[in-house]
Write a protein that binds this DNA or RNA. Structure first.
Length: 944
DNA sequence: ATGCGAGCCTAC
DNA sequence: GAAGGTAGGCTCGCAT
């Protein structure tokens, strides 16, 4: 799979005798359910629904090969399946110039298992001086089946592990001996120093297409998904009081399900008090639920009915091994997985009821689980409605959110829809990076493993990481746009703003507006208004004014820091790397140095104590005194050993030093960033950022078309526009999800592209940006709270806000937010990367250099009010918790409170209570400074 | 009482 | 077997 688009032309251009297959039972069934194996005939067009790994056997030779089963849906709604052969492979690296010998040896050693070995040249970003064009040779071992690959891989992994653990000294010694000795098989094995890409999901490998086999051709012009059948179901069972249902003895009371919008309900009369008639549950006009009801006499009949219908509609069969009814071609998409990973709802709102309220916008029927069994007997009609309501909610949640999201994500990630839904965001990220690396002929690094025995200043490290985002709370209390507050401004800062006014406005016009300064007709007019405002603030710096409550935040800060600084794990270089590089010349600009802060926690014990304990424990036996059960410590798995050793060390520290860990150490470090490294990583990030912008734009376009369609009343066009709005919104969300994961991914356990330095540089750069913003804001207004990429602040009411520049030809208008551009000029001055290099000629290795800065503040507001809670303790300010209100009185933001709904109610009560209002006024206009000594009124949020 | 670390959940 | 990260608030249990 190349991971780009799921709609493919499908061709099968041969007279297929060679691979004539006997229909297996699976194929028989799949054919019955519409997925006929497409093996000859005209070229077909299909939308790839899903795929699964499989194998096929050549009838003549009985030779088994790995393949992927591809399940397609045609434009007319019919389906077909095809088997697409591939050869799984992995790479092996050898000692220098040993490729040919090792190849010959491996061919002999694994004669019956290896299908082919090729020597290939790959871009190896770990290779010294690779920018000069040096490539690394790898043996590409291909196999007919995954089983064969697995067997050879595990064999060679042991060899490589042994070879890698040998010291350099030994290696050098052996090299001298080699020439003199007759070469034995062991010598060739010793030459295999690394394996790569051996743990890649194997259906992923597929790229080559042989001339007499299945041909796949991507159709990038077609974007619309095919129509597929969707079934959402919900099962109600009996249960014991205060217990969860148990399949051992509990009965199914009813099954409700919706297939393509039509509802069905099967009633088990053993548990339900009365026959139920067909019913309707339509919580909203757009969520119509008409249910056909079948009443059966017992659970067996219920299951029979259910399975019969599932077989007929969806094509499920029983997998005897798993004991599950599944169909290979039917995607099983768990809406709950979407809720957990993609809904952005708080942990406490992950139940179906809460999700229905939040995402579908209606209140579903709710029944206390403890009442359900009784109600089934006593109020059967009510329980039927309840059961059906869950199926309706699930169906429309899936149709509205999950389906478009997952299938659009699946067009860019080479995984089946089921996996795209269930995998972590870091894994999705890695898959995308692997696609990009593959295209750039870059060999993938192996999964990162942390060094279990790292020291710092003669002490064992318990853990190490980097300083992350910067958070501060500077005020507490209530800030209202209609309630004057006191400002103590810094006149020199205003003087500075005035002096820089031309520079800042011209920056906004040229860089943000991309407009020629000369074409602006009202420049002086705007400038003078701002100048007047700033001058008045400068001249009267102590003042009481209604505040402008603003939120200024950097859009997609971490991705844009990555892109601005060309940050990627393989770009982090040491002096040693640079020294070996051809581009390392005096006055070079290709090395960019950026700071970050390392933080480590060390054990109290000294390194020598640690080694002493290690020696001791290594001579011991574990698992009791019984000689027969006793096992040498050294026979335990490595990770187990390290765990036990650390445990021993902890006990020792506790005894000898009265504490285990020393206080955390931090250290400012400098990372060297290569501005020339192969750009596949930043390219992946950028293409995501840009494609997301594209989809956001298209979403806006279709929103326009939707309102047009609504105006004309054409229901077909309304529906079409509505669908496109959802489609593009889900596409932009898909990109946002991945975009945000490219930063965290570099510190993920087992990441192929791992880098603590890179993560540290990203967060430290961000922390400096937000702290610089605060430095400015505290001179010209009041910062209230800042967190990582945004700052909440109160500016004096007379502070210049929005202005519109017009061009002489009247074609363009540019509206600027003065607080925003004031910060952006600062950001650009401090963060522009003038060393950004782009490879423009791969043959001559020529690079062009340009300046890059895509880090920009955006502005929200002004708002009606912001409330920052105080601690119960004197003078302690609380971060990450606040409430913000819009001008119309609605709640704009409520952050940090576990019980949002309850918190909201409480807050509004506090806010509206007359008694408190006067108290707030006293606090707000009072002369005592709020920061630090908060002796006045405090808003405290209490959850109960 | 007070201080701590663990566990849970949230902000970004 | 699969796995984005760090910062921070709050509760609770446990040791002092």
């Amino acid at each position: 799979m190349n991971g780009e688009g799921r709609r493919r032309d499908f061709r099968y251009n041969r007279s297929s005798k060679k691979h004539k297959l006997i229909r297996t039972a699976e194929e028989e069934l799949e054919a019955k359910l519409g997925f006929d194996l497409f093996s000859e005939g005209e070229k077909r067009l299909g939308w790839l629904l899903t795929f699964a790994s499989s194998s096929l056997e050549d009838q003549e030779t009985n030779k088994v090969s790995s393949c992927v089963d591809l399940y397609f849906v045609s434009q007319d709604g019919s389906c077909f399946k095809s088997k697409y052969k591939f050869r799984p492979y992995f790479y092996a690296a050898t000692k220098d110039k040993m490729e040919i010998d090792v190849e010959a040896y491996l061919r002999r050693r694994y004669e019956s298992q290896i299908a082919n070995i090729e020597i290939v040249e790959k871009e190896d970003l770990d290779l010294k001086n690779h920018l000069s064009g040096l490539r690394k040779s790898y043996l590409k071992l291909s196999f007919d089946t995954v089983q064969q690959l697995m067997s050879v891989k595990s064999d060679l992994l042991h060899v490589v592990e042994r070879n890698q653990s040998k010291s350099d000294a030994t290696e050098a010694y052996e090299l001298i001996l080699m020439g003199k000795r007759e070469q034995k098989s062991q010598d060739f094995l010793d030459c295999i120093v690394d394996l790569r890409e051996y743990d890649v999901p194997y259906h992923w490998y597929d790229v080559s297409i042989s001339s007499n086999d299945v041909m796949l051709e991507r159709r990038t012009d077609l974007l619309q998904r095919a129509e597929v059948h969707v079934c959402a179901f919900d099962i109600e069972t009996t249960k014991l009081p205060l217990k969860f249902p148990d399949a051992e003895y509990d009965l199914i009371m009813m099954i409700s399900y919706m297939i393509d919008g039509q509802g069905y309900l099967i009633i088990n009369r053993e548990c339900v008090g009365d026959d139920i008639e067909d019913l309707e549950y339509t919580p909203k006009p757009e969520f119509e639920g008409c249910f056909t009801v079948t009443n059966v006499k017992n659970e067996l009949e219920l299951l029979k009915k259910w399975f019969a219908h599932m077989r007929e509609e969806v094509g499920f069969q029983c997998d005897k091994n798993q004991g599950e009814y599944r169909a290979k071609f039917a995607c099983h998409l768990d809406c709950f997985a979407w809720v957990k990973r993609d809904s952005y709802l708080p942990q406490g709102s992950h139940g179906l009821k809460a999700v229905t309220k939040a995402k579908l916008g209606y209140h579903p029927l709710e029944v206390n689980p403890e009442d359900m069994v009784r109600f089934a007997m006593e109020k059967p009609q009510m329980m039927a409605s309840y059961s059906v309501s869950d199926a309706v909610a699930t169906y429309f949640l899936y149709m509205t959110y999950v389906h478009p999201f997952i299938f659009s994500l699946a067009t860019i990630i080479p995984m089946s829809p089921d996996e795209v839904l269930r995998k972590g965001s870091g894994t999705l990220c890695e898959m995308l990076l692997m696609v990009q690396a593959y295209k750039a002929n870059v060999i993938c690094p192996n999964k990162h493993q942390s060094d279990p025995e790292k020291f710092y200043n003669n002490h064992l490290l318990e853990s190490e990481t980097y300083i992350g985002g910067h958070v501060e709370c500077l005020e507490s209390g209530v800030f209202r746009s209609d309630l004057p507050t006191s400002f103590k401004l810094d006149p020199s800062a205003y003087e500075q703003l005035i002096n820089n006014l031309d520079r800042d406005l011209q920056y906004a016009i040229r860089v943000e507006g991309k407009i020629d300064l000369d074409s602006v007709s009202n420049y002086d007019e705007v400038k003078n208004v701002i100048f007047e405002k700033l001058a008045r603030l400068r001249d009267e710096p102590i003042r009481v004014e209604c505040p402008l409550i603003y939120h200024l935040d950097v859009a997609a800060m971490y991705p844009n820091i990555i892109l601005t600084n060309r940050l990627q794990p393989p770009s982090i270089v040491t002096d040693e790397v640079c020294t070996a590089c051809d581009f390392n010349r005096p006055g070079k600009t290709c090395l960019r140095k950026l700071e970050w802060v390392w933080r480590g926690e060390i054990f109290m014990a000294k390194k020598s104590d640690y080694y002493h304990l290690k020696k001791q424990i290594e001579s011991e036996f574990v698992d009791g005194t019984d000689v027969q059960l006793a096992k040498s410590f050294l026979d335990l798995p490595k990770t187990d050993q390290q765990l036990r050793l650390k445990d021993r060390l902890k006990k020792y520290c506790q005894k000898a030093y009265k504490r285990v860990l020393d206080k955390p150490v931090t250290e400012v470090r400098e990372a060297g960033i290569c501005m020339r490294e192969n750009s596949f990583y930043v390219d992946t990030v950028r293409s995501f950022r840009d494609r997301r912008y594209e989809y956001k734009g298209l979403n806006k376009v279709w929103k326009g078309k939707l309102s047009e369609a609504k105006a004309t009343g054409n229901s077909i066009k309304i529906q079409e526009a509505q669908d496109m709005v959802v489609l593009y919104d889900s596409l932009q969300l898909a990109h946002k999800c991945i975009l945000n994961s490219f930063y965290g991914y570099v510190m993920r356990k087992g990441a192929r592209w791992y880098s603590m330095e890179m993560a540290g540089v990203v967060t430290y750069t961000g922390a400096k940006i937000i702290q610089n913003a605060r430095l400015l804001v505290e001179k010209i207004g009041k910062p209230l709270e800042l967190d990582t990429d945004g700052i909440w602040c109160a500016l004096p009411g007379s502070f210049p806000e929005n202005f519109t520049f017009k061009t002489r030809d009247m074609k363009k208008k540019l509206t600027i937010s003065y607080p925003c551009i004031m910060l952006n000029v600062d950001v650009a001055r401090n963060n522009t990367n003038d060393q950004y290099q782009t490879l423009t000629n791969p043959v001559t290795k020529t690079y062009t250099t340009h300046s890059e800065c895509s880090i920009e503040f955006e502005v929200d507001g002004p708002y009606k009010a912001m409330i920052l809670p105080a601690s119960k303790e004197e003078g302690i300010l609380i971060k990450k918790r606040y409430a913000v209100f819009n001008d119309d009185g609605t709640l704009a933001e409520l952050k940090g409170f576990e019980i949002k709904r309850r918190g909201e109610l409480k807050l509004i009560k506090v806010f509206q209570n007359k008694k408190y209002r006067s108290a707030l006024k006293t606090h707000q206009s009072g002369s005592s400074p709020v920061r630090g000594g908060n002796s006045g009124w405090r808003v405290v949020f209490v959850s109960c």
